[in-house]
Design a protein around this nucleic acid. Structure first.
Lengths: 236, 236
DNA sequence: CTCGAAACGGAGCGACGTTCCGCACCGTAA
DNA sequence: TTACGGTGCGGAACGTCGCTCCGTTTCGAG
């Protein structure tokens, strides 16, 4: 928000609990592979790369755990200092692992986003119609976002929406929703000319800023939006 | 955003170009009438109140003009210092007239909101159907919000959505939209069980955070949302 | 054990919204 | 016209934010 460089930082798989190979973001924007341990099948051209330091891994894990806990209690908008303190490290360490606040959020929620993405094809198989599958998937997305109050600030980001969270959603979820929409369009249920990106963005805006007001039911508004897909848009 | 007291500040008619009577916000939340000139019909119990100082009025006007210009060029998220500098006054003067950033925004756009509100009944008379009137009115609202990029931060506010802008919208626009929706429901066009507040809030969220991305058309998404009003919501 | 590179911690930077306080100005009364 | 009292003013200052700089520590290979 302050004086960051304008480069689009590629987010990588910071947490390697599910994949050994990692890529870390260099400040100039080029993604370089981390020299992980030699157990995995990396091309051993230069096997002399030093082993990953143990404190690095420990701190990374501590940061992710702490961030998860802090975000769960204080909301996603919690200050980075708070996360760093909870992890028992300095802020510089946090920023060395996660170049941006948004990157930290992405790392914390990445596997949840993955689960959300993987639910798409499954729903297409189990739900009675493609439109029902689409609606169910969007509701799952809403439920996912709804538990993270204050996500809006991260979702919106600073300048043009080039947050890491935004990139993650576009890369991971837009294709899934696109498949659902295509199927629903093929079945004739969906007729409105709307792209998956537009719909996802709209749902995100709707949910990310929803108040915890009992008079306001986000799910209902999202349902309203998705229902609109079944109609030709009005004339103008 | 920083260390404001949690009191809900009542916004008053800061700019008296259309109404002489003014109320200013006291820090404890109680609205007290400003001692304006005795020309208007105030209860003259204490007519000895000193006349309003001329510099006060001049600065207020300068601030509003400057804020309008700055918001138009730098966006609504422009720093208060910038507005104060453009008006040629100190920040303290700005804060004396507008207790919060959000209050300044409200004061700048108040008459536009009024115009938006007044367009409601008119559209009901000119548009072919109440639903068409509703859609047209919502589109007008979108156009109004769309010109103010960066409004999201103000729209969202800090804690629970108790921004002055929020209060203004709820007090001024919700009744108007309610009338439109009632008419559209009476005509049978709108069947979805949605309140005016819910719809306005959803449209606001949709628009306030819309990117200037050419791939994303807010108007289309809002139309989608309003179109959903014509259908019974899907089962759950 | 030595040593150099990599990682660390926390002070520091710039920007933000908002408040404090000594001084200047305005309007009234003599 | 001048003196005066209080209201309004300006800008430095405060607390917080995301993020960076740099002297110091620590890891692990030789």
């Amino acid at each position: 928000m302050c004086n960051r460089k304008g480069t689009l930082i590629r987010y990588g798989d910071w947490l390697c609990e599910d994949a050994g190979m990692m890529t870390s973001a260099a400040p100039d924007g080029s993604a370089v592979p981390d020299g992980t341990d030699g157990t995995d099948g990396t091309d051993g051209a230069d096997g002399a790369v030093p082993r990953r330091r143990r404190d690095v891994e420990r701190n990374q894990r501590a940061l992710l755990d702490a961030a998860g806990a802090v975000f769960a209690t204080s909301g996603v908008g919690a200050p980075v200092r708070e996360v760093a303190a909870a992890a028992g490290v300095g802020v510089a360490t946090l920023y060395r692992h996660f170049p941006t606040r948004s990157d930290l959020v992405v790392a914390v929620y990445r596997h949840q986003v993955d689960a959300c993405a993987e639910a798409g094809p499954a729903l297409l198989a189990t739900e009675p119609t493609p439109f029902a599958a689409t609606l169910a998937w969007v509701h799952g997305f809403v439920d996912f976002l709804g538990t993270k109050h204050g996500l809006g600030r991260v979702w919106e980001g600073d300048d043009a929406g080039f947050t890491a969270l935004h990139v993650l959603f576009v890369e991971r979820l837009v294709p899934v929703l696109d498949g659902l929409l295509d199927a629903a369009r093929a079945s004739g249920e969906v007729v409105a000319p709307v792209t998956a990106y537009q719909l996802l963005r709209a749902v995100g805006d709707l949910v990310a800023w929803a108040p915890q007001d009992p008079d306001y039911d986000v799910r209902r508004m999202v349902t309203l939006l998705v229902s609109g897909l079944r109609q030709e848009p009005p004339a103008p």
